[in-house]
Nucleic acid binder design. Structure first.
Length: 264
DNA sequence: AGTACCACCTGACGGC
DNA sequence: TGCCGTCAGGTGGTAC
């Protein structure tokens, strides 16, 4: 599922395939993914412009549009979203919900089988982040700010890590990996960690996110002691060899290892 | 404030 | 073979 590392990889993909190409036309295959913008508005405002740079905040990706008016193309990948670029007359990929056709023959498709992703236009990234009440990006937040933000919170660590207004970018899979690498039971409460251990959790979070990006979110390139590649029905714990257990925490399936994860 | 549950959405998968 | 229920989890809404 697209979380911060996945979106970072999409950002780099966008940068290498779509920057500085003039948009000739826009095809909206499904209006379900449009966020506060009509098909007409999107298809009307993009042609003639190009994406000049990109930014990521949490799981949201923004493409800076050229032109007199400031504007950003907004992308959120939901649960099954991705980007696909190609050159020439080939057919668009299956489930291409929005397609940009560039003047030079290149194309970029926002692919989203389950239509839970979003495409839109925003005037200002900071304003958007504020309006959505998104917390600091999980890879940009300072250690001290992280510790302060979590200190005194009630509820589970998993809930806090996934709370986008506390910290933007982490979802179910990476919160599981962070707790696994930290050796913490998935139901551990924030209040069970003192500031020193919250600091250590920050270090683990950085390590997990950076390592995932280095691996290009490819499970076959992830470290041998990661549990994410084994995160399915009968997966085994890479640390103890026993079957991973499943548990519901904050309404989601957690995969965890009783031998490798315990209360602090 | 935190949690539970629902809706949106569709492909995969297991049971029968 | 094919139908059907369940699951997957992103956001956002509601209720408690």
């Amino acid at each position: 599922m697209p979380e911060l590392p996945d979106v970072q990889v999409f950002k780099e993909y966008l940068d290498s395939t779509a920057l500085h190409r003039e948009i000739e036309s826009v095809d909206v295959g499904s209006t379900d993914v449009l966020e506060d913008v009509s098909k007409r508005e999107l298809a009307g405002s993009l042609p003639g412009r190009s994406i000049e740079s990109s930014r990521r905040h949490g799981k949201w990706l923004f493409g800076e549009l050229s032109g007199d008016e400031p504007g950003w193309l907004l992308l959120h990948f939901g649960m099954t979203g991705s980007l696909e670029a190609w050159k020439g007359e080939d057919d668009p990929p299956e489930h291409a919900r929005v397609r940009l056709d560039f003047e030079d023959g290149w194309h970029l498709a926002f692919v989203c089988p389950r239509k839970l992703g979003r495409v839109g236009l925003v005037d200002d990234v900071e304003v958007f982040v504020e309006e959505r009440e998104l917390g600091p990006d999980a890879l940009e937040v300072e250690r001290e700010t992280f510790v302060e933000a979590l200190s005194g919170k009630r509820g589970t660590l998993k809930g806090a890590l996934m709370n986008q207004s506390l910290l933007a970018g982490i979802g179910n899979e990476y919160s599981d990996e962070i707790l696994f690498q930290a050796g913490l039971h998935p139901r551990t409460a924030v209040s069970e960690l003192d500031e020193e251990r919250l600091g250590e959790l920050f270090d683990t979070m950085r390590e997990v996110l950076e390592t995932a990006i280095e691996a290009r979110v490819d499970t076959s390139r992830m470290p041998d002691d990661w549990h994410l590649p084994h995160r399915h029905g009968d997966g085994t714990c890479p640390k103890c060899g026993k079957n991973l257990q499943r548990l519901a925490v904050v309404g989601l399936s957690v995969y965890w290892s009783p031998d490798a994860q315990s209360r602090p």
